[in-house]
Simulated scan of single mutants.
Amino acid sequence: MTETVLEIKNLQVEYHTEHGDVQAVRGISYKVNKGETVALVGESGCGKSASVKPIMGEKEANQVIKSGEINFTYQTENGQKTVDLLKISPKEVQSQIKGKEIAMVFQDPMTSLDPTMKIEKQIAEAVKASNPKINKEQLNKRVLELIETVGIQNAEVVKKQYPHQLSGGMRQRIVIAIALSGNPSLLICDEPTTGLDVTIQAKILNLIKDIQKSRKLSVIFITHNLGVVANIATNVNVMYAGKIVETGTTEDIFFDPRHPYTWGLLESVPDVNESVKELPTIAGTIPDLTQPVVGDAFAPRNKYALNIDFKEQPPMFEVNDHHYAATWLLDKRAPKVEIPTVLKRRIEKMKKEAETDGE
């Protein structure tokens, strides 16, 4: 039986601003099972980061959680325990959950690292936070072990350095080492490869994938780039304007996408083997979420939009028992719309490559 580590139910998050209340997260629900990597994908401003901040107990002054549950299951000395993270105090989250059971890796490692402290001290402080009784010898051993875990060879040298003496990729590896210091069961990665060059990006992704497999970690991976999650995610939630508009396994989303927004995201992924004059983009911008959303939020940017899209929000239509999409195009009464030709050709190519890799 699959063990659920995190279950989010109908989460709604608003931010009070001088321009009005921003409906950043408009009722999302999903599960993260043990050992799975669930990707949250979508353009900047679609609510990805806003939806995970409550998991970490991060509450901004103008943030209001309108409704929802965040049920987290973890192991204690007395067996498994499930808590609704929205019903326990921020102090409890900080002392019992954050950094121990749930850890996070952010986009810019320099926001997580103290520029005035050597690497060994920063990792040591994280280790002591989850294991206050650890002795000096064990602590030194653990610091070296964590540095080596994230693929850094010359650990003895690196631990004596300051963050500014390391490359961007090395700094991100140290941030991952700090995140792993408390042996969490859930790791949240918020755009962890943005700003890194493609080669280093691939190495960090492979590192996260290897750590996830070896530790049976559950991972939430946030990114604006669908191409990044192709080889790392088990399941993908495509977000738009604070809602999940398509959800499925990685194979569902890459080989059988059904939402026009997902089509646009996939088309926007560069393919070095294709000769194109300009990269396809999704026209328009995300809606103003200080205003009530009428119908499908994506309708004004959707060239396949039907009349009903501007009047009524589509439900989640079932494609199969693990693949759903919120688009009226899946209604039995809707006209037949073919997937864009360029994307269809790309999917056929991906399928052939997947078959070749599997032989």
Rank of each mutant, 00 (worst) to 15 (best):
I88H: 09
G358W: 11
K81T: 14
S112K: 04
I253T: 09
E18K: 13
M1H: 14
T82N: 07
H322N: 14
D108H: 10
S167D: 03
P300K: 06
K53I: 03
M239V: 06
P132T: 08
K48W: 04
D114W: 08
I244C: 07
V229D: 00
Q107C: 13
S49P: 07
S49D: 07
E60R: 12
L11E: 00
Q153R: 14
S95T: 15
D114L: 09
I253N: 05
T223W: 06
K98E: 00
E246G: 04
V229K: 03
G99P: 08
V229I: 15
L187P: 11
P270G: 01
N273L: 14
I339P: 00
N273T: 15
E191H: 14
N154G: 03
V83A: 11
Y240S: 09
A50V: 02
T4W: 02
L86T: 03
A124Y: 07
P335Q: 06
Y304H: 12
Q80F: 15
G264C: 04
T17E: 01
P163S: 03
N237S: 13
G151L: 12
N78Y: 12
K118A: 00
F317I: 12
D108Q: 13
K31L: 01
Q165G: 04
Q172S: 06
Y162G: 02
P315F: 08
I174V: 14
I308C: 09
N273R: 12
P132G: 09
S29R: 07
E101G: 03
A61L: 04
G295D: 04
G151H: 08
E3R: 14
K100P: 00
P192G: 11
G227C: 13
I253G: 06
Q75T: 13
N302H: 02
V198H: 02
I211E: 03
V219K: 00
G358K: 14
S218I: 12
D271V: 12
V229N: 03
T199P: 07
G227W: 10
D321I: 01
K128P: 02
Y324K: 15
I232T: 15
S275D: 13
A155V: 12
S167C: 13
Q201S: 11
T17L: 04
V294D: 03
P314Y: 10
P260Y: 03
A233L: 06
R301S: 08
N135A: 12
I176M: 13
T82W: 02
G79P: 12
I244R: 06
H164Q: 09
I102D: 00
K31S: 11
T149W: 03
E36A: 05
V52R: 04
K213F: 00
G42E: 01
D271E: 07
V228Q: 07
V25Y: 00
L343H: 05
I8W: 00
Q201Y: 09
R301P: 09
S275C: 02
K9I: 08
Y304K: 13
G248S: 11
I65P: 08
Q161H: 12
I282M: 08
I152V: 15
V276F: 04
P280A: 01
Q12F: 01
E251C: 02
M117C: 06
K31P: 01
P335A: 11
K66P: 00
D114M: 11
K53E: 11
N71W: 01
H16V: 13
I88N: 03
G42H: 06
A299L: 08
P314N: 10
V93T: 14
L226E: 00
I253D: 03
I282F: 05
Q122S: 10
K344N: 14
T356V: 15
L40K: 05
